[in-house]
Nucleic acid binder design. Structure first.
Lengths: 207, 207, 207, 207
DNA sequence: ACAGTCGGGACACCCCGTTTGT
DNA sequence: ACAAACGGGGTGTCCCGACTGT
């Protein structure tokens, strides 16, 4: 993961690192839309405006660039999905806010959810990318689990409800609906998923 | 669509058609595991035991073969998921049987659910495959809708429940859980999804 | 060369030979237009309506078919160029009639003069075709030489005029003009060549 | 058109341009001898010493390379045929010098005259090459026409003689004779053509 | 005898991801 | 940061022989 601007010496951000960042930002939509195999260096060259040499100066291989691009893409969607969430009332309402964000906000990286895309296209044969996706998925789930637990601590949650299950149901339902929506080219499935999860939280999770 | 054996002259199944079928069966796991872009003709040659000339005699292009392979893969998983279903009591129990089949039976085509895989890897840039997936998804959903409607006719279903929404929730939840299970390399998410959907059917759908 | 209908037993022309002839007639324009390398068996299949097996039954190789096709093409243009010639007055007038035929009659085999085409496209690397062309060219030249000699015997020709030179000048001028006409997509060069050769015969050859 | 070495900064001829030139020079004889269809990339690789990647860096396609190779080949034969021509006395003598050069000097590019070769092998189906040949032919003819006109201005030419016709007769006769010479593997036809054209110029063109 | 199906092995052109020199 | 070259792989097509059926 690249520095996120928290450095004490912001002037130490070299020109090279800026270029690297530019490459990553340009590459992310390519990989996200076309997949790892479907993205050629020519595509990347066109997107970045650099030649191969310019790209290979910053990344040792296509795979390394794809990994950085995934990290960037994931970071981007994460920020969008978490925006306004902390301001919501904690607990169940907070979870509903996250769900609404997922459903109502388009991916800032063209091509849809990078977790779904990369999980499928790089499930086999690309252990580097696979590990990144698995990590992102774990991060996401643990964040949801933590929210469930904090709700539980405030007595908002039925006894016997397992945070991990709730988190998994939410993620799975949202990602599955996303796949359907993309195939059907409308948002019916996503909206149905949101309403379903909200009722689920109200009737099965809430105390 | 290939002959389905209903011919009066079964001996008319030529050697060529047998070979074509062999190619399709061998190609399906390749495409399902590696994706369209990730599958090379060399992979296909190795899997089929034929040389390019032998393959291209039966398919005009890689894309045409991929389409036939998807049809075959979808047909295979469909059969597995529908096995024993008609024997289940109709209505809600029937839906539960389908869910259990999805969760408990491994895909007969290595690489997981071809709908999920193909929907993601061929979402962009391959309209032929895209159309096949969309059709398969529609078939699946309509089959579930019909079951919900038949349950409704027998009074098993709450008023106000929309069959299409139920169908979409089931498919989305299962496919999303499948993606998570694959990433986490365990079946927790799938089992969680099954239990979740069963409760959903009991509390939200059943009258 | 195939039988030309002079057989005593015309009924012995088998179906196979008819098919062979059909193939040759269909193949000749292909080879003449596209050249040997440029003509694929697929082109030949399309032109003949036969499959490869059907073609290879009659010809051991593409090269053998090309040779037969050239013979047929040459025979065709020869007939056209010699039509009405024997009826012309012998000698110089006869030569002029041949020249006019060359210039004014389109090749019965699409693609232009097979001698020029094959001489150039098969000059290297195809000794079989090369030999056929050389023979055709020799036949042509000797026929012209004979006409010059017969004119000389009647005292129509200047002393010191070599028949071979006259023949070569005629052929070369016509073929060269044909090449130019094809490039310029008009008949200027051919017509210029005819007038030039006529004057040449009048002033340089005629006694 | 490549730089001709007249630059003030000769060091600006990059390595890439040198390589490109090397490729063109090596490719020209291949295309000229074997024709466009008959020349494979393997042939070109062997001739240039480069691998496919090295060739395709400089040319987007085989056709583009063939076009450059034709231009180079034409340029080469043009230089040879025009050498010593400007030093000859202008007018009719100048034309005779050109004819002699054509007949007596072997093509600097193995395979014979690229105009004849390319005109025939690329007459159909390769509009790029076709256009180059047509242009070369036009250049050649116009150069001859200009010489005839300049002779006419000095009163060396009969009235009524059309420069275009003279040019076309010369080119056609030479190219046709070249074809015959190649088939007969001797220079008789070419020498006959030269003598014929010289007499033609003396008796039909000269005043 | 003849036509067609089938498969092979090689090769077509082109583009890939990568390394190197500058 | 690029220009240059590489070696190999991409898909697709070639011509042909052997087999199958009429």
């Amino acid at each position: 993961m690249r520095p996120t601007g928290l450095s004490i010496h912001p002037t130490t951000v070299t020109k090279g690192e800026q270029t690297r960042q530019r490459i990553v930002e340009a590459a992310a939509p390519i990989f996200n839309r076309l997949g790892y195999d479907g993205s050629s260096l020519a595509d990347l060259m066109a997107a970045t405006g650099l030649k191969k040499g310019g790209i290979y100066r910053h990344f040792a291989s296509k795979e390394e660039l794809a990994a950085a691009a995934f990290d960037y893409a994931w970071d981007s969607v994460w920020k969008v999905r978490m925006r306004d969430v902390s301001e919501a009332t904690p607990g169940i309402e907070n979870l509903k806010r996250r769900i609404a964000n997922f459903v109502e906000r388009r991916s800032p990286v063209p091509g849809g959810c990078p977790v779904l895309n990369t999980a499928v296209t790089a499930a086999e044969g690309n252990s580097v990318l696979r590990a990144r996706v698995a990590k992102a998925l774990r991060t996401w789930r643990e964040s949801l689990e933590a929210e469930v637990e904090s709700a539980a601590e405030r007595g908002e949650v039925k006894t016997g409800v397992e945070p991990k299950t709730v988190a998994t149901v939410i993620i799975g339902t949202l990602e599955g609906a996303l796949m359907i929506s993309r195939m059907e080219r409308n948002t019916d499935a996503l909206i149905g998923a949101k309403e379903h999860l909200n009722r689920y939280l109200d009737t099965e999770v809430s105390a």
